[in-house]
Amino acid sequence: MQYQLVAHMAAGLEALVARELKDLGYETRSENGKVYFQGDETAIATANVWLRTADRIKIVLGQFKATTFDDLFEGVKALPWDHYLPMDAAFPVAGRSVRSTLHSEPDVQSITKKAIVSKLSEVYHRRGRLPETGATYPLEVSILKDIATLTIDTTGSSLFKRGYRVAKGDAPLKENFAAALVMLTNWHPDMPFVDPTTGSGTLPIEAALIGHHIAPGLQRHFAFEDFRFIDPEILQKVKDDAMDAADWDVELDISGYDINQEMIEIAQENAKQAGLGNDISFKQLAVKDFKTDKPRGVIVANPPYGKRLGELEAARKLYREMGETYAPLTGWSKYILTADLGFEKAYGSKATKRRKLYNGALRTDYFQFWAQRAPKQK
């Protein structure tokens, strides 16, 4: 069966998710924070296992206009809930309403739930309450400008939860956001990759997963594994194919540094959990002490932003050290994420390009300093 599917992601990452889906063979249509595509049960499993930069994958059950609660009730009830939900299904309903006549989200949730119960009770000839003792089918009713959209979340815990991070430090990067930062660079697996403020190691680990062509969802579980209408063998085949697609032969040059030895130990443990303990070099090192004789490479950093009181001065001192340390590395591209708009002044150089991104709810800028092109061989 073909489904209307939608991938959700952080604002600013729509093009990356669309590119990932196109690489997987799906045609896409993008909106703010969403990329739509169509596919069968295998597509649901494939998107969940392979997408690096998305948050979750949902099945779109239906869309209709709803300006009254009667509209909402009848529109919800008309959908084929019995195709998706068995009689014992647990189906919590989350609700959102934005710029719509029906603005009370608790009432929207309640009416939606009642409509689904009414439909299933008729189909299954059930009197009284439905048991809801079976598998969980997370539902959402979202009303935007009076258009109601009903979805089932196939992912469960957000896709950023890869399953390898056993420990983390302060303000860690989400795994899918770290993957996006890597994918927005000019890095290729045959180039050196350096994270000078690695923290719990998420950036180097995501780079290594990309370098080895390892699907990010191999180690985790998904909500759809319990759905009655999806054959469990489908996910197993997708994971088996993903294991076969991994390229363990490629040699990677990936390093993560941090001034805090405790964070280095955490990063090493996380890399080990990801099966990449031998693929990444983690070492205690201050930014100002970094040296390399490699002519070309990529530096990706998520340094402290100095958002807390009294921390801005220390953050800008670090930015100055970065500028001074990296200035001689003309063959290297540097990509630095920060919420401090005074970054370029402290760094001592104007970025080649800036890209606005949201690290969670925080507006940040991705400052990009592109390498000088190597002279052509005569």
Rank of each mutant, 00 (worst) to 15 (best):
134 G>V: 08
338 T>R: 12
277 G>Q: 00
326 Y>D: 01
235 L>S: 06
215 A>S: 10
280 I>R: 09
302 N>H: 08
143 I>T: 05
87 M>F: 11
80 P>M: 02
196 P>D: 07
347 Y>F: 14
195 D>A: 02
61 L>N: 10
22 K>V: 13
313 E>C: 02
231 D>I: 08
168 K>V: 05
108 V>R: 09
279 D>Y: 15
124 Y>A: 11
101 T>M: 08
327 A>Y: 14
324 E>W: 07
102 L>E: 10
59 I>E: 04
145 K>N: 12
29 R>A: 09
127 R>H: 08
119 K>E: 14
287 V>F: 07
89 A>N: 06
327 A>G: 00
370 W>N: 06
224 F>I: 03
306 G>V: 05
103 H>T: 11
342 G>A: 11
38 Q>W: 06
198 T>F: 03
299 I>P: 04
338 T>W: 14
297 G>W: 00
128 G>F: 12
243 M>N: 12
177 F>Q: 01
308 R>T: 02
373 R>Y: 03
103 H>V: 04
363 R>M: 14
164 Y>A: 02
116 I>W: 11
96 R>D: 12
61 L>S: 15
308 R>W: 01
100 S>P: 09
160 F>I: 01
312 L>W: 04
42 T>A: 15
93 V>M: 09
133 T>A: 12
117 V>Y: 10
213 H>T: 15
161 K>Q: 06
294 K>V: 08
126 R>K: 13
258 D>N: 00
155 T>L: 03
11 A>I: 13
82 D>H: 15
347 Y>Q: 04
251 E>Y: 12
232 P>W: 04
62 G>Y: 06
368 Q>F: 03
202 T>M: 12
294 K>F: 01
223 A>Q: 09
298 V>W: 03
136 T>V: 15
241 D>A: 05
151 T>G: 07
253 D>F: 15
364 T>S: 04
358 Y>N: 00
361 A>Y: 11
90 A>K: 13
242 A>L: 13
36 Y>Q: 04
95 G>H: 14
246 A>Q: 15
84 Y>R: 07
162 R>I: 09
65 K>L: 00
286 A>N: 10
49 V>I: 10
369 F>L: 08
190 D>T: 13
266 I>M: 11
106 P>Q: 08
367 F>D: 09
346 A>F: 02
